[in-house]
Design a protein around this nucleic acid. Structure first.
Lengths: 337, 337
DNA sequence: AATGGAATTTATAGCGCTGTAAAATCTGTG
DNA sequence: CACAGATTTTACAGCGCTATAAATTCCATT
């Protein structure tokens, strides 16, 4: 059976197409009698509006894209949940795009060939340079998420990673720890995220008069619990000792817990550990993780606010907004008594 | 600056719109000279095809939807990663839809008002009845994921949850455990998933001549580590004892580990634990989780294969495919020696 | 040079919907 | 009861693209 079009309904109800369209969209200026008549026709025929037609006519797709490296990473999946919920509350649907954390993948996001696919893009990049981002996509509203220097021309939401990591590090210092390592940043070409976190770590140490010991920097091949566990384990096996670990993210922290536990090293007794992200698993590790909790809900909301303003026609310079964070103290680095 | 349309390029190159369209799509029957001339015009004007126009003309959107309760649940986020990657390999983009695990949310998926939004839907339902699913959506290709009796008319991919859970349970029995509990299924109206897993658990017990003790069924309010930890903890505090736990999923298992560990109960010494899903966190818990690993990659591939066949016009009865699983033995329920 | 057949190109009619402006209908008032 | 003013409804031209079929060009033969 052929699809029912607006025209079919119009003929059936004996009115014009536009009137049917008005009823479908609850346009106010329709007389109750007409509305009822049309509604009946709508129901009888089982009309379903066709998205493509509307889109072509309005120039809006009602879709937003959310792009980042990999949905299966807990922080991103939690972000996706929030953005998806909030987007649908605002009447948008969400397109998921994974870049795999590669330059090619990120370029594909920024220079998608097809126009009109989505009304806006929320993009957490990690390897692409901000100048390159600034160049493309002038035509599609874009909000950048995450660290790094976003181009002035583009809207951007971030958490102050330097400050947050410094807070986490100070917490360890307050616990009396002095040989504090940093774990889990990428071995070569660390992302802006890792860079900022390293900087906050270093800042807090210097503030406290502790010399930064390069041997306590424990990078891993990639951002994952597995690689972190491997590199931390190897360092321990080589005899490296430390009394605390600031981890690039909760995955690295979870890897760290594993590496330490396998070697019978007590956490937090011998080594205290702090993570970053407060993924939902953080309260279920053993011991549970002290970690930085970014205000991800605020990130999602601010990003969508800005995107909607751009979609609505706002055309000013890029706005740079900061979302909050807090230190969630759990067992892996308890409160100093 | 106004967007460049096909017509603009055509005028610029002095050819017809269709010829430009042919060049854009690498249609073979275009003379080299024309092709080059058009390509130059394309480049000079910086043409970007408009997705909405193409869609309306072709009737295809190039999009698939993936729907389930909540992306932030590890199993779903891992599924989303696979489906998204595989979909984009096949030239589709992926729309993410969350139902929140509610009936209203699931109904919204199945009866989306707009037609032509996506070319197909992959849907893991949990509360909606299969008959209700069968009724709607005759017009959009649909593949169902997960347990429960899918309607005959609809394509369906699942893992044999009964067999898998029985395998996990037998593993515990082989370990010499006899008071084996089941944890983490929903307190009221368990989902089909929980139902099947409970059945597999029961089956294996009966097979071994162990009576099913209803007091060892430890449901929780909702599917989450938190609720599982709470309900298992409460049962322990009331004096309930068991020597093993089959968990509804890895989240429940992680909650179980937490509840046990907080009470100083040794895993696997006193209580052995098996999970379900083999989420990536399963190798990083303490102790690491013995769990059922469904072949999620196969699920994603089979689902997409069937969807593409439907999109391609296949119109037969619903096909029901089974994806494999394996028991991954780790520390929480080690191999019997 | 004429001819037939293949290869290339073009003109045009939608795809299903909405925006606009004009037409039709309905008030309330003098 | 006519008429201005407000409200409701309609006709129709696109939105940007592709499919179809017709028109044109090209080339190898006779």
């Amino acid at each position: 059976m052929r699809r029912i079009r607006l025209e079919d309904v119009a003929r059936h109800a004996g009115v014009s197409m536009k009137t049917v369209s008005n009823v479908v969209h609850d346009y106010p200026h329709v007389s109750p009698r007409t509305r009822e008549k049309v509604q009946r026709a709508l129901d009888e025929l089982g009309y379903r509006p066709n998205a493509s037609g509307r889109r072509l006519a309005t120039g809006r797709s009602g879709m937003l894209a959310l792009a980042f490296s990999d949905v299966s990473m807990p922080y991103f999946s939690e972000l996706a949940r929030l953005v998806s919920n909030e987007a649908s509350r605002r009447g948008y649907r969400l397109l998921l795009e994974q870049t795999g954390g590669t330059l090619a993948g990120e370029r594909a996001i920024v220079s998608t060939m097809e126009a009109g696919l989505v009304d806006g893009v929320i993009f957490q990049h990690s390897v692409m340079s901000s100048t390159e981002i600034a160049q493309h996509r002038e035509d599609v509203p874009l909000v950048l998420l995450g660290e790094g220097h976003a181009p002035v021309s583009v809207d951007h939401v971030m958490v102050d990673n330097v400050a947050a990591t410094a807070t986490a590090t100070r917490h360890l210092i307050a616990l009396g720890r002095r040989r504090i390592g940093f774990a889990g940043h990428e071995e070569e070409s660390p992302s802006a995220t890792s860079g900022d976190r390293l900087m906050g770590y270093q800042q807090a140490l210097e503030e406290a008069g502790i010399r930064v010991d390069m041997s306590l920097l424990l990078p891993s091949k990639s951002v994952s619990a597995h690689e972190a566990a491997f590199s931390i384990g190897r360092a321990l096996d080589r005899g490296l000792r430390f009394d605390a670990l600031v981890c690039r993210d909760d995955l690295a922290a979870i890897g760290a817990l594993r590496a330490l536990q396998e070697r019978g090293i007590d956490v937090p007794g011998t080594v205290a550990v702090v993570g970053w992200d407060d993924i939902s698993m953080a309260s279920f590790t053993h011991p549970s993780l002290t970690t930085i909790a970014p205000d991800t809900e605020a990130i999602a909301n601010i990003a969508l606010d800005m995107l909607e303003e751009r979609i609505g026609g706002y055309d000013g310079l890029g706005r740079h907004r900061i979302a909050g964070f807090s230190l969630v103290v759990r067992e892996s680095a308890p409160a100093s008594s």
